[in-house]
Design a protein around this nucleic acid. Structure first.
Lengths: 245, 245
DNA sequence: CACACACTGTGTGCGCCACACACAGACCAT
DNA sequence: ATGGTCTGTGTGTGGCGCACACAGTGTGTG
């Protein structure tokens, strides 16, 4: 009946579930050491720079020693994500809109700090402590609204999805320097101008090739602008609820 | 001044830019053959099942022959995506809301048909013909609105982001059978119930552990529900524009 | 009409990867 | 003290993306 044992080893470690006192040598380090080493590699070289052997070498251990802490490469990603996000912000603003905005900005900041997060393949919903804590805070932002628990989940996920997507599009796609990112943008525009025939793709030419009103997409206010649209949508749902109880 | 030559070979091929008649043997196949073979592999075994050697073997050629058509593995992904999405739907509905909804549903359907799309790493904005055509149609959905071209781009991207994220959360995360997906869901709930302490994570327990009002997330109406929120947000932006011209 | 040469698919091989497995030593409960 | 379990290590395997040299092919140009 020991239902804890069927948890992946990584989750046991992250949640600090002690595998009780046991014979055998003491572990030489902790998964948080693995997380730090892997994150350092990923921050400077993208997710592709993270391999079991490189992480192990950075720690001064052999490759296979990592498998005592992590069952597979995917579990390494779990540890990295949990460590990279850290603890969520405490939201003490007055309105739900201010709270979820602060949450979204903190979320965005974490992804900008660690662009490789966007490259991590997602296989299942999060179960690690910090990730759950972020979810909890995001849900609590809607505490004083009329939304039902399930609707709060949808709304939180909506914001979550938006931030992820917005960062994906806005920031340099991979972990490039600012200069490289600008060059990539220039090249993209040149190619778009070359390929997008105004007859076949008039809307694209009008919207992307010709800068039009506001020119740049990297504009940080663009993030808030899009977020406000998302929040307006949630607001509409709240309003509708208020009308018909 | 031949600016077309600095295009990646894949884009030249996809756009049908003929490399004029030249000496040498005729190509034995076309990138669309590569796309079909790779997609077949990915549909049945996930993106991890796609390797240069397996695709080549499926075509009856050697691994290295593929590099005559595709400069690198990432370019193979470009071809796969373009082929998997195919041509976008023609939108002839009366209102922008109906049009963008149809567009979003077609987009969702494509991703449900090919779940591996979510696993494809994104390195730069799309430039392939079908992808541009989808963008074009998405932008045209807002044709009769007061939105400026740049705002139409933002709105289209907002919907695009939403669909991607919604499918990511809703559908089985990787390409699993329905039965495996149900089992994964059951396991996730069991683990969540185990880890989410009601004292520390009351909102998560209320929203995810206890089914509450509506129970399932896989519900297809949930997709429309969330999409409507997004569209309400865009509507709010349009309304605001109408008030203050 | 011949031929030069660009272009085709092929074969070999390199370095890297995730991971299996057997092992020697470290440590705690008894 | 000692048995059993857990530690980190060493070696090895199959797969991967891709570089590079190569032989054959067919067309534009002489």
């Amino acid at each position: 009946m020991d239902t804890t044992t069927d948890l992946p080893r990584v989750l046991e470690q992250l949640w600090g579930i002690e595998g009780r006192q046991r014979p055998g040598p003491k572990p030489a380090f902790h998964i948080s050491d693995i997380a730090r080493a892997a994150i350092t590699l990923a921050d400077s070289g993208g997710l592709a720079a993270v391999s079991m052997s490189k992480v192990a070498a950075a720690l001064g251990f052999t490759t296979m020693s990592l498998y005592r802490y992590v069952d597979a490469k995917d579990d390494l990603y779990v540890v990295m994500l949990d460590h990279a996000f850290g603890e969520p912000p405490v939201l003490e603003q007055a309105t739900w809109r201010e709270r979820i905005t602060a949450w979204a900005e903190a979320f965005r900041d974490a992804m900008v700090r660690h662009p490789w997060i966007l490259q991590v393949p997602v296989f299942e919903p999060p179960l690690s402590p910090n990730q759950l804590a972020w979810m909890e805070q995001g849900l609590r932002a809607f505490e004083d609204t009329a939304l039902a628990p399930g609707e709060r989940v949808s709304s939180m996920l909506l914001v979550n999805i938006y931030v992820r997507g917005a960062v994906q599009i806005t920031a340099d796609m991979q972990s490039r320097s600012a200069e490289e990112a600008r060059e990539a943008d220039r090249l993209y525009n040149a190619r778009l101008r070359l390929l997008a025939d105004p007859e076949r793709f008039p809307a694209i030419v009008a919207g992307l090739v010709d800068p039009g009103g506001h020119d740049d997409e990297g504009d940080p206010s663009e993030f808030i602008f899009g977020l406000d649209s998302v929040l307006d949508g949630i607001q509409a749902r709240i309003d509708r609820k208020a009308e018909k109880p």
